[in-house]
Each structure stands twice: as C-alpha cells, then as structure tokens.
Design a protein around this nucleic acid. Structure first.
Lengths: 234, 234
DNA sequence: GACGGAATTTGCCGCTGCGCAAACAAGATC
DNA sequence: GATCTTGTTTGCGCAGCGGCAAATTCCGTC
C-alpha cells in the first residue's frame, strides 16, 4: 500500500502529457486493491464511491436486466479506466464489473473526480475521448445486432477479443483469459447452444481451436470473411 | 442572418448557467440555416466543419453500412446539439443527419469548439453529460436488441418517440413528424413488412391508430405491457 | 378528375436460430 | 482415485420473422 509510485501509470494514454510530480500526486491518492477471480469490482445500481484503473487482469462489464438476462457490454484490459460513472453524469454504477481472472486495480474516491478533471486537462480530455470511443463502439454493436446474423456477430466478437487481448501461440491467436460459450453468447445476443454449435463447426473447418473456457483463433482471415458475410456456410 | 440573439438559446440545458453577455457572444458566432425536408444537415464520413444546434424541426440520424443497410441511431429534437464529432475525438461525422421535416439550425465552425469548451465550463460539462446519456441510450438499445423480440422493440421505440415528441390529440398521443414503417424498421432492426403487420394487429386491438407516415398511440399503458413482454399476443 | 409514384397491407413459404433435454467431458474437491 | 460440479456438445422440433410477390390505398400533380 505504501509502495505505489508513478511508474504504475506513467505511459498510459489516460495520463499522457501529465508531469511526473502530478503523477505522483495522483497515484498518492489511490489505493491499490486485489480482486479475486469472479468477484465484483463494483456493482450495478450501487453508489459510485470510487473510480478504478485496471492495472492487471481482465474485467467483464455486464448489465443485468430486470427479467434476468445478462448482456456483456465490454471487456476491460489493463490500462483502462472503469467505473467512471461521474464522467457520464451518474452517481451509481451502470453495470456490474466482474474480474475474469485475478486482478489488480487502483481505486480513487469519486469525490476526487472534479479536481482531477479541473487540474489535469489532458486527463479529462483523454477520458472524454475514451467515452466518445465507447459510444462509437456501442453504435457499432447496435448496427451489428440490427444487420448481421448470429455467425457474423460471433465472428466479429472473436476478432475483437483477439485484437484486444490476443496472445500468439504456435496454434494461432489465443484469447488470453477464461471465456465460456455462455460469455460469448452474452456478448453477441444469442445462446450458449448456438455459440457451441458454431465453434464446433468452425473447429471442423480448422478455423478455431477451442476447449473449456479457452478459444484460439487459427485462421483470423477466414473468420473475417465470415464476419463480413462473404463466406458461404459449410 | 443579422437578427440572431440570445433568446434563441437561453433556457436550453446545454447553455444553462452561462451569462447573458456570453450567450450573445456565442450566438454571434453562429450562422442560422434552413434545411428542407429530406435534405442532409451533415453526412457520414464528411469532414466535420461545423457543429449544430437544432432550433426547430426534427432530424433523423442514420448510419449506413457498407452493404447497404441503414440503421437509425436517434432522432434529434429542438434544443439538442448534433454533429459534435469533436467532442468524441473525431474529425469526420459518424453518421448522416437528415431533416425529417423542414428544419432550422444554428451552425458553428468546429474550430470554435475548443474555445467554447475552455471558456464555458458549463457548456462542456453539459455536453459531456449529453454524450454520457447517449452512451447509456446506446447500451439500452444493445440490451433491447439482445434480449427482446421484435414486437417488444417496436413497442419500446414507439413509447420513446411519444415521450420525446408526442403531441396530445383527441385520439391519443401523436408522433409529431412524418415517420414511415420503413423508418420504424430501421430504428428497431427489423423490416417494414414486420412493422406493418404489428401496427395492423395493434390497430385491430385499438392500441394505436396509424396511417401514411403517421402513428398515434391510443393506449400507451397497454403498449408498455407489450414492450415489457407482459402481454400475450392477440 | 385522371394519372403516377410512393407507402402500406397481406398472403405464403422457408430458414435461422432458440428451447428443451439428455449425454458427455473436464476440472475441482476431498 | 472416486465423486461432484461446471462447462460443453448435440439431436430434435418448432416458431418467429424475413423474403418475395402482388394487391391496395393514399397523395401529389398535371
């Protein structure tokens, strides 16, 4: 707890262009926190007491509907902010954030947000840019849901995941955290059964290799063809 | 062109808390513009030379996909900003904005954006709040597309429209601009045929009244039941 | 008032993909 | 190593809804 220093956050795009002494001040006001796999970082509808920076691990952001459906909004990678309810003009968290693996985060009390935004223009500029690109992601998502078939959406989701957190292996590009068929279904608006059928079919064609909570994309290029609807079903 | 004054924008939430003299300065730098029905305010991928405030009329924001699909992102009502690409960290417009009826807008050159944001903290705060709520709308949309059936989505869309631009008539609540079955289909990710069938069925049950590019909701409460999936199909 | 174009309605067919159910596999636990 | 839990696979049936096509109605225009 006493050993936090600016090297943790220097170089992250959110803190780009901020002086070293300011970075120290910023980090000095954070507390670091471990979140065990499958535990929440924050929860939907809760008072947004803190905002967070993910230092290590992967976090799944999920919205629950009143009727029991779960929709995965996005995955957070190291270096990204989360729980920034105040930047959206909210006082409660809009979704659940669940650690997909053991994670390390920095947490700041929300009351510091206005001061950060005022004192560090590049911080607020970078944050709002991030919000802007999330808005565009969300629109892309809406368009995909409106115009694409399930196989295209699942293909797009896998491509996004390997782009964001892909790790080269000798077999192909591995999604670098445990992800179940159910998780993929919640990202794409379908059911785990349909995802399972698709992955099985793609595995037969040598496009992917997958196992329990593990997916490796073997042929990204052919997957892209499916994502864009340019390949007939096999 | 010479007769613009602050009364045009005073009282709008985006300009809340800004002094009268500043409002004059802001309006003084705008030019007002008429957009005829079905003409574009700005177009997707174009250089974002200006940002706009809708003074009168209704504007449909539509994204076109490479394969020829059109998805309606939102409708803009008087008092709302649009084309604020710079607030999202973009230099081109992300979508087409089409006048649903004859419109009047104020336009500012985009290069004024940074100065506005710096000089009028409440302007930038209000804008980012608006972006935040659009992000939440987009997420809501994703959730609806993922978990709801077509009839629920169309019901939700109609409810949103009457909430935003509903006008009381003796028959019910009228959506106060021309809107076709095709338009509703593009808002909900379905086809005009399905929308037509749904509206016909609902008309038989007395839920709505509709005609050529006109929809009136007669029984909002029962429509809400459908939107929430609590009513069996008739 | 007749004509032409655009929006809407409606029938029919077929496919995508979901629901249900049951078997199966892979880790986790003791 | 035996058992339990959790994730995955797969078959079968069917319903929601999209595609196609044709008829119809509405409205602007000449």
């Amino acid at each position: 707890m006493g050993s936090l220093d600016r090297s943790l956050i220097a170089g992250l795009s959110v803190f780009e262009g901020i002086a070293a002494t300011d970075l120290d001040r910023i980090v000095g006001q954070a507390r670091s926190q471990r979140i065990a796999k499958d535990h929440p970082v924050f929860q939907q509808e809760q008072e947004a007491h803190s905002f967070f920076l993910l230092l290590d691990g992967h976090v799944r952001v999920v919205k629950s509907t009143p009727d029991g459906h779960e929709v995965t909004v996005r995955y957070i990678s190291p270096g990204e902010l989360m729980g920034i309810a105040h930047a959206l003009g909210r006082t409660t968290y809009p979704a659940n954030a669940i650690a997909a693996v053991d994670c390390v985060v920095l947490a700041w009390p929300s009351r510091l947000w206005p001061a950060f935004a005022a004192d560090f223009p590049s911080f607020s500029a970078n944050t709002y840019k991030a919000v802007g690109s999330r808005l565009q992601d969300a629109h892309t998502r809406v368009i995909e849901m409106s115009t694409e078939q399930v196989d295209q959406r699942v293909a797009h989701a896998l491509l996004k995941l390997i782009k964001q957190t892909g790790k080269k292996t000798e077999e192909g590009i591995l999604i670098d955290f445990p992800i179940s068929r159910q998780d993929i279904a919640e990202m794409t608006g379908t059911t785990l059964h349909t995802v399972s059928r698709l992955l099985s079919a793609w595995e037969d064609q040598g496009l992917v290799k997958s196992g329990r909570q593990r997916v490796t994309v073997v042929e990204p290029h052919r997957l892209l063809l499916i994502a864009e609807g340019r390949e007939e079903k096999g």
